[in-house]
């Protein structure tokens, strides 16, 4: 691992299926992401962006090649080690929010910290601070079922960022949101990116999301076809 690279892939390849049914979802992808970057992965359905995101997140295993997050080569890790890396170094935001329905917003934000073993007082302080940062301090005691989609996604962002991860991975974070809520959410991610220097990689079809990212990677048929670094912010 060199310099400030947060993510580095080497000839990363992922095939699905066997024999004649084999499909190459990702084909020898090499790229790096530095600390503090806000990257969008775009491309048509089946282009490999979600596959790439899952491999970076340690949620999937490559057929060949390597993927590094910080100093850790995920390819060589066991399931338990990958779980440990996800818990301590990576935050996730999903298309479907994926909050635990029996927990309040605050408890959802506290959840990962509980797994990390953070003590109750610190956990509560950090969760409240993060909910305040995403504009949901007043809804801390509400359960996901009593919140709008946009509010739930903000809670998901708070949960992903509260542990100050090295990397935030967002898979189609705006897919279930209207444009106004998307703008608000992306503004929030951007602010977090600037405030905490959190590295963000998001897979998206959404042009609004792409506008907020500073670096835009275009995938097609499992390969990077364009990598536009250093675009001016929105």
């Amino acid at each position: 691992m060199k310099g400030e690279n947060v993510v580095r892939t080497l000839a990363l390849t992922r095939d699905y299926g066997d024999g004649a049914q084999r499909v190459r979802a990702l084909d020898s992808v090499d790229f790096t992401v530095d600390k503090g970057e806000f990257v969008s992965l775009a491309g048509p359905s089946g282009s490999g962006k979600s596959t790439l995101l899952n491999l970076i997140g340690g949620l999937d295993t490559p057929t060949s090649g390597e993927v590094w997050v910080g100093d850790d080569c995920l390819t060589a890790k066991s399931a338990a080690e990958l779980a440990h890396i996800r818990l301590h170094r990576i935050g996730f935001v999903f298309q479907a929010y994926n909050l635990l329905p029996v927990l309040s917003a605050r408890e959802n934000v506290e959840f990962v910290m509980q797994l990390q073993g953070v003590d109750a007082t610190e956990r509560r302080e950090r969760a409240d601070r993060m909910l305040d940062a995403v504009g949901l301090a007043a809804l801390a005691d509400r359960r996901p079922g009593d919140m709008s989609g946009g509010q739930q996604q903000r809670v998901a962002v708070a949960r992903a960022l509260v542990t100050e991860p090295l990397l935030l991975l967002a898979d189609e974070p705006s897919a279930n949101l209207d444009s106004e809520t998307t703008e608000s959410l992306l503004g929030l991610l951007r602010a977090m990116n600037e405030r905490f220097a959190t590295t963000i990689i998001t897979a998206t079809h959404d042009p609004i999301v792409m506008r907020y990212a500073r670096r835009h990677i275009q995938l097609k048929d499992g390969r990077i076809v364009a990598d536009d670094i250093g675009r001016p912010p929105v």
Binding site: A83, H84, R86, L100
Partner: peptide, 15 residues
């Protein structure tokens, strides 16, 4: 989905 989410967030399988 919930149990999958827990795994994704880094909860140990034993837990």
């Amino acid at each position: 989905r919930e149990l999958g989410l827990m795994q994704v967030l880094g909860m140990k399988r034993s837990l």
